[in-house]
Design a protein around this nucleic acid. Structure first.
Lengths: 339, 339
DNA sequence: GACTGGCACTTGGTGCAGGGGAGTGCCAGA
DNA sequence: TCTGGCACTCCCCTGCACCAAGTGCCAGTC
């Protein structure tokens, strides 16, 4: 083993010990708990080098070392491998999620299971409307010149709107309209379906266009509904209290951030199907010094639906957390693809 | 002013000062800040009497006095009057809530406004299904022997289910079924509508009964949906950090309680249209020593829809909180009654 | 009888000094 | 390149004295 390799070994040991004990780790404790094959004096030299590289730091002169954000970054990138979940853990996720009755329920259960598994704050974005396809569109005439519009998406979400129109809709026109709407949208992704909708209006007789237009406009609104794309569920905030003093600031700004859904969506970040880790400033949120986010996209092979993840102290068990996030993402994706 | 009256005046002053300063209040500070017309020695005697009655307590021998739960109770019952909201506050509630687009939005906005107004944790229960009436029922035939069932309630909530039936539904039967379902349910309260539904099945020809039964059964399920009756929204948890050390325990058990919706519903308690206050053990929750709940039912005059309220430290501004809870409840009730 | 001024007493908080412990950096030697 | 040893630094805990705030009680006054 080269000296360079041993230095990285030392870093790994420091991260692991610090995560376990929450206390700065010194050279002596290190040689006692790990088989490094050298003396504490050597470790001290290595530590000095690691500190020069900005990978670890000392809270004060005569204290042990603590990993820096950069140190965690290196640990995640090169020194750790994703831990496999235990059988019972995997079964727990599966049985718990399988019991869900609808999309909302899936999301809420995912949040709960993820929070319990990781002992951190769990964040799950609702399946995106814009990323799923249209499974069904239904138009129903109600009394008093009103129409009920129902859209069912491939992720199982159901959206409905009531449209006021200028006169009662005849049965012929109704079924004609229904047929063309279905033809233009079903099976297509939402953004494409939106485009096709615009063409539908022109295929109707001029006399019918006002009515058709109000229905189509409402449908377009449903498709472009930003609000529902922003929906997220949060759970396990009680865990914040557990790692209380860890965040440089108080937990208050963190709780505030968790209530701002826009902030949360930024935190989850861009979708990748493998778990991504953002540490400290990498989260792009100033009030989250001392915090890290582990996130992953979920969906089926060819279709990303949304993102989920956890928020915890930088001092977290990255391998375990990444495993949990990855596993839950896979199960959620599978369930929503089936349903 | 009798001696007895002055004692209650002293209690009121202690509560007000303690709420304002968060520090035990002594006899000297009391005579300085209030026009009590007697010396600090007299106040000391009064305080000793109040302490004998269990209305105030000393953290330690040489400290000032702090109100006990019993003291707050007396204060709320006899010594305070509900503070009127300021004009800007009332206008803020109104404009903020008026912008809501649907029931979910109303609830979410209410939580936000209530949390901001009171600087406490806000809890809003979604309008109860069982307490509202049926506004509309719609049955739509989908492809592949499936039927879409839509229910719209008086509170504006829309529920939908897809029912698998054994064979495709003829147009005649469909409109017949729709008509009878509407006749049996629309305009009635959900529990009563449920009862009527049972009779509908028998009015159909035996051959049609299997299909009718599956639809009616599903509809009954929607009506008796307990899950949606349990839904609550929580906001302002960041305020917990503000009154941090106030709760006897840590904030952790409180955060945990806030994630358990069942616990929250118990906290909101039985519905009364005027703001109710529960202090300390009165909340019926052991982990909430040091906390108080102010809650109120909302709805129209003759119809209670659900409950909302706030959770804060016993050391809170009761008059202001009760005013805010009452005002938000009134506005929410009005908006949902109109919508 | 109710109120007041005065006084002794209690107690938590703060500032200060000293000792112990953990850990480091560095140096000389293998 | 590694190791043992040693001097040094700094945090943290403890004990101590002191102060401020507040009380309880008592004797005196209206």
């Amino acid at each position: 083993m080269s000296a360079e390799e041993r230095r990285l070994d030392v870093l790994r040991a420091i991260v692991e010990d610090y995560v376990a004990t929450q206390e700065p780790v010194g050279s002596r404790a290190l040689v006692e708990r790990h088989q490094l094959g050298v003396s504490s004096a050597t470790i001290r030299n290595d530590m000095a080098a690691l500190e020069d590289d900005g990978l670890i730091a000392q809270p004060h002169t005569s204290a042990g070392r603590v990993p820096t954000d950069k140190g965690y970054r290196l640990f995640v990138d090169r020194l750790s491998s994703v831990k496999a979940l235990s059988g019972p853990e995997r079964r727990a996720i599966e049985t718990f999620l399988t019991g869900a009755v609808d999309v909302d329920d899936v999301v809420q259960r995912s949040v709960k299971v993820l929070a319990q598994l990781t002992n951190q704050v769990a964040i799950v974005q609702y399946p995106s409307l814009t990323r799923s396809t249209v499974r069904h569109v239904e138009v129903v005439a109600l009394e008093n010149a009103r129409v009920l519009l129902v859209v069912i998406t491939s992720s199982g979400r159901v959206e409905q709107r009531i449209v006021e129109i200028e006169r009662t809709l005849g049965d012929d026109l109704l079924s004609d309209l229904r047929g063309r709407l279905v033809g233009a949208t079903v099976g297509r992704r939402i953004p494409e379906a939106s485009l096709r909708l615009a063409e539908v209006i022109d295929t109707f007789a001029p006399a019918d266009r006002p009515i058709v237009t109000s229905v189509v406009t409402t449908l377009t609104h449903v498709f472009s509904n930003e609000r529902s794309d922003e929906r997220v569920a949060v759970g396990g905030t009680a865990n914040l209290a557990r790692f209380g003093g860890d965040f440089d600031g108080a937990i208050r700004p963190v709780l505030e951030a968790l209530e701002e859904h826009v902030v949360l969506l930024k935190l989850l970040g861009e979708a990748t199907i493998d778990p991504t880790v953002r540490i400290g400033t990498e989260t792009g949120n100033d009030s989250l010094t001392g915090a890290a986010v582990v996130s992953s996209a979920y969906g089926s092979q060819d279709q990303v639906l949304a993102t989920l993840g956890t928020l915890g102290p930088t001092r977290m068990d990255y391998p375990a957390t990444m495993a949990a996030v990855g596993a839950v993402a896979r199960y959620v994706g599978r369930i929503l693809a089936d349903g």
